[in-house]
Structure formats: structure tokens, C-alpha cells
């Protein structure tokens, strides 16, 4: 079989064979091989539970694919909540006619990404919809993680740190869509961030991955939720040359571009050196930088940006859709 047919989704023998030969075979782990209706896992203590759906277009892009993205996205939601990711579910909604070898490639990256983070896909589901009812492949993942710490209270004077360059995922997707006559070797930064977990033992008080809405939107949410003033220094925010160039050409504000492998965190000022040194020692934190602080010129709930030129302006949350279907 080279293409997924509607009959695969019908629930009969064909479906069972397909799930066994294509999905379980590729993902391969003892939980899935049991073919139960539910996975039985043994857990205790404080747990975090999250879910996310992925509808990115194109499904293969430089630096990743929808499978890697779906696993990374859910792992990262657990990591930034202070939880060690353990188990994932994986639901596939496949458009009739989708190539089986493409599906296998995507499932291989699901397996590679989850095992790199010591996470198991323990349950899943497959549906096939008629051609035209979905765009190739949609994935839903849910994840369970063990809560590690209860973070401390955010105070004035705490520092803001980003763990790596910001905005690469959005730019990689824009270029991959081919809507603009640009090309370049910009890669999505899509990756699991489980290597950031030790940060929770270094006094980190809050963490968020910089996905849709970009850094500006995430920081506005921080200021609003905690009712604190936030100050950001534009010259210290790490943007890659490709992000800077594309933002410049298209007139896009790079503060709204999404990452899938970078986070922003709040930490006590006296832990700055330790945290930065740790981050600079792991591949996921090569460009980590202190980008601002809690406090400064704004009122509680506001994010004030000191621009590279030394002027001041507010950062506002993203209004409207900058780019549809990037994750």
C-alpha cells in the first residue's frame, strides 16, 4: 500500500493491519504492542497534563516535520510548567490518499524525538477523512509529566532570560511555503526542551516557550497574569541573522515571530550567572541572554521595550494572525 485509503479508518481488519504494520512497527514500544484500549501506567504524586493539536503547513519543513513538532510542542508545554515529561498520546487525522512513506517518515521523527527526551508514546488513535476534508495530516498529542518543584514568587528586580535565538520557526515556515521569492538555509528551531529541566533546581520562578504570538505576546501574558511591570532591552534579545533579514524585508516585527525550541524565564538576579553558564553549556541554550527585568519604567501589567536606539515603547500582544498554521 503506498497511499492511505478510507478503508484504513473503518475499524476492521485493514485498520488493525495498518496500525500494526505502519504505526506500531515504526513507533515500537511495549505499551503500544499490547493494543489495549487504554494504556496502563503507574504514577504517583503531583502530575501535569497537557494537550495540543498540530496543523502546520507544510508538514515537512527545514529543521523538522509535523511529527517532531507535535512531540516537541507537548514536551515543551510540560517542561515550562515545571514537569518532567513521561508519557504521550498520539492521534492522527489523515487525509485520504496521504503517502504511507511520508507517514512513516513522520512517525520515525515522532519516535526519535520522544526517545531523545526519554518520553514514551503509550496510546494513540488513527482516523482517515475523505480527500479534501483535511489538509494532509493533523496530529494531536497529549502529555503527562511529573511536577518537579513549586516555583517561588516573582519579585521586582528578578531577571528575564531567553534560552536561545527567537523567531526561527516562523521564518523557516514562511520560507518553506514558498510564498515569497526567497530562499535560504534557515532551519526551524523545533526541538524538545527537556534539557532545560535542571533550571528548575536553580531557582527559576516562571518559564514559557515562545510559540505563537512570539516574545512580545508571551511577555504581555506574564505582565498581565502576575500584574507586574516588565522591562525588555531590545539590543540584548538574540535574533539570528536570517530572522533579522526577513523581518526587515517584509516589515515584520520580530518580537511576534514564533520559536519551537526557545523559552523565556524569570529568575532571581543572583542566579543569573549560574543559569547563563548552564545554558551556554547545552545545545538548546547556546545564545541564552539576559533580556530584561521585572520592574522598570512601566506600570504593573505593562511591558516596556527599550529600543536599540534608546527610545521607549510598549510591547503589545499580537493582534490578528501574523501567519496562519505555523504549528
Amino acid at each position: 500500500m503506498d497511499r492511505v485509503s478510507l478503508s484504513v479508518g473503518s475499524g476492521g481488519k485493514l485498520m488493525r493491519d495498518f496500525v500494526k504494520e505502519v504505526i506500531v512497527e515504526t513507533l515500537g514500544n511495549p505499551y503500544l504492542e499490547q493494543f489495549g484500549d487504554s494504556a496502563h501506567v503507574n504514577l504517583s504524586g503531583d502530575l501535569c497534563f497537557t494537550t495540543d493539536s498540530f496543523v502546520v503547513r507544510p508538514i515537512f519543513f527545514p529543521g523538522g516535520d509535523i511529527g517532531k513538532l507535535a512531540v516537541s510542542g507537548t514536551i515543551n508545554d510540560l517542561v515550562v510548567a515545571g514537569a518532567r515529561p513521561l508519557f504521550l498520546s498520539l492521534s492522527l487525522i489523515i487525509e485520504e490518499g496521504f503517502f504511507v512513506h511520508d507517514l512513516k517518515n513522520i512517525l520515525s521523527s515522532v519516535r526519535a524525538t520522544s526517545s531523545s527526551a526519554d518520553v514514551l508514546v503509550v496510546t494513540g488513535d488513527t482516523k482517515v477523512v475523505p480527500k479534501g476534508d483535511a489538509d494532509q495530516l493533523y496530529i494531536n498529542t497529549a502529555g503527562i509529566g511529573q511536577k518537579l518543584v513549586e516555583p517561588g514568587n516573582i519579585r521586582e528586580g528578578d531577571v528575564l532570560i531567553v534560552t536561545d535565538c527567537v523567531g526561527d520557526h516562523s521564518v523557516a515556515i514562511m520560507v518553506a511555503r514558498g510564498e515569497f521569492d526567497f530562499w535560504g538555509d534557515v532551519q526551524s528551531d523545533c526541538r524538545p526542551l527537556h534539557s532545560l529541566l535542571p533550571l528548575w533546581d536553580m531557582g527559576v520562578k516562571w518559564m514559557r516557550d515562545i510559540t505563537r504570538g512570539g516574545l512580545a505576546t508571551v511577555l504581555c501574558e506574564l505582565a498581565e497574569e502576575k500584574h507586574i511591570p516588565v522591562e525588555v532591552w531590545e539590543r540584548d534579545v538574540p535574533f539570528s541573522p536570517a530572522v533579522n533579514a526577513l523581518a526587515e524585508i517584509l516589515g515584520i516585527d520580530s518580537f511576534y515571530l514564533a520559536s519551537e525550541g526557545s523559552a523565556v524565564l524569570v529568575a532571581p538576579q543572583d542566579k543569573t550567572d549560574e543559569i547563563i553558564a548552564f545554558l551556554h553549556g547545552i545545545p538548546e541554550g547556546r545564545h541564552a541572554s539576559v533580556i530584561g527585568r521585572i520592574g522598570g519604567k512601566g506600570k504593573p501589567g505593562e511591558v516596556v521595550l527599550e529600543t536599540a536606539s534608546g527610545g521607549l515603547r510598549y510591547l503589545e500582544p499580537l493582534t490578528g494572525e501574523l501567519l496562519p498554521r505555523i504549528c
Binding site: 516585527d253 527610545g311 515603547r313
Partner: peptide, 12 residues
């Protein structure tokens, strides 16, 4: 106008 406001120079 964009340069002036995005850089904060308009207010300065």
C-alpha cells in the same frame, strides 16, 4: 512614521 514610533524616537 513607523521608524519614529517603533524606535521610540518620536516621543523622545
Amino acid at each position: 512614521t513607523m521608524t519614529a514610533y517603533r524606535s521610540g524616537l518620536g516621543h523622545v
